[in-house]
């Protein structure tokens, strides 16, 4: 195994990590703020891919899809928020899990009705369709674009959370929702905004993933479990946790799979179980203990 192989594996891991990050950040912040577990988050990712494919066909451009798909998913998210999510906030984890599990079923069939049961591809934009040379290996440029996009989103979110007033409000609400409400933060509006951003990022992840993995009706369910693992091991509600968790799970599931295929498949579940039993607040807890 030469250095090129390592670089390749590492880039694959990084690219997968970035997709996981885009999904898990929404899920984790929504949990931190609303104490809501949204199993349908994977379904939103799938809708992002399908809406992206339609938007690309409509506008004739990948970039049309890149803009429109997250917006479409945000609209779906807003609809969900007002019909279900807001209503179920105090309903306990079982009801939340059940309703969002039901949503998975609903979206599954919506996708099958709208786009059929076959895998659909999406062409990467012209400028990004080739390969680039990086550290001695040639790597698909589009995948490098995903890595870069993830890094940019990470940086922007970090800046917003750490440096802006809205970020301070979000952090305060995660830390202590009642206190934040008492201090005059409009918690309801803040929740809605954060939920929408989370949905938009899930949609973005979907449309960005479509050229690499194709859109299938099963993609939402298969990405859901790794995303949940990321969120839990990082610490529910924690931004840094989502970053760390994405990188860990991304590495385990790609680099690990290349070296120890049978162990890597179990490893992330082992890690999840170990964290839940030994350190349920996660690696980087959202709240001070």
């Amino acid at each position: 195994m030469d250095a090129g192989f390592w670089v390749l594996q590492f880039l694959n891991a990084l690219q997968y990590s970035m997709l996981l990050f885009l999904l898990s950040i929404g899920l984790t912040v929504i949990f931190g703020l609303l104490h809501f577990v949204n199993l349908a988050h994977g379904a939103l990712y799938m809708m992002g891919a399908y809406l992206g494919i339609s938007a690309a066909a409509l506008t004739g451009s990948y970039w049309g899809a890149f803009i429109l798909a997250p917006l479409g998913v945000t609209a779906i998210g807003a609809l969900l928020y007002f019909t279900l999510i807001d209503r179920l906030r105090g309903a306990g984890p079982m009801n939340q899990v059940l309703v969002t599990f039901g949503l998975i079923f609903v979206f599954l069939d919506i996708a099958r009705l709208g786009w059929g049961d076959i895998a659909l591809g999406l062409d990467a934009p012209a400028g990004l369709s080739g390969t680039s040379n990086l550290l001695g290996v040639s790597y698909p440029t589009y995948r490098l674009f995903i890595i870069g996009l993830g890094a940019v989103v990470m940086a922007v979110l970090w800046l917003v959370l750490a440096r802006t007033q809205i970020g301070a409000m979000i952090r305060a609400s995660v830390e202590n929702g009642d206190m934040a409400a008492a201090m005059g933060i409009n918690v309801g509006r803040l929740f809605f905004a954060v939920f929408c951003v989370g949905c938009a990022l899930a949609g973005l992840a979907g449309v960005v993933a479509a050229p690499v993995f194709s859109a299938t009706t099963g993609m939402g369910i298969s990405i859901l479990i790794p995303t949940l693992i990321v969120v839990v091991i990082g610490g529910l509600g924690s931004l840094q946790g989502a970053i760390a968790g994405s990188l860990i799970v991304g590495l385990i599931e790609t680099v690990g799979a290349a070296f120890l295929p049978s162990f890597a498949a179990v490893a992330s579940y082992l890690l999840l179980a170990a964290i839940l039993v030994l350190r349920p607040q996660g690696l980087i807890p959202a709240r001070g203990t």
Binding site: P93, V97, L236, S262, A273, L276, V277
Partner: peptide
């Protein structure tokens, strides 16, 4: 998993179930 409750219990049982699934699948 007896020390976990709520969503943590749900996730923990998910983890152990998926572990068994993966072991057999592989």
């Amino acid at each position: 998993t007896a020390r976990t409750t709520g969503i943590y219990f749900i996730m923990a049982t998910l983890a152990f179930g998926q572990m068994a699934y993966t072991v057999i699948f592989k």
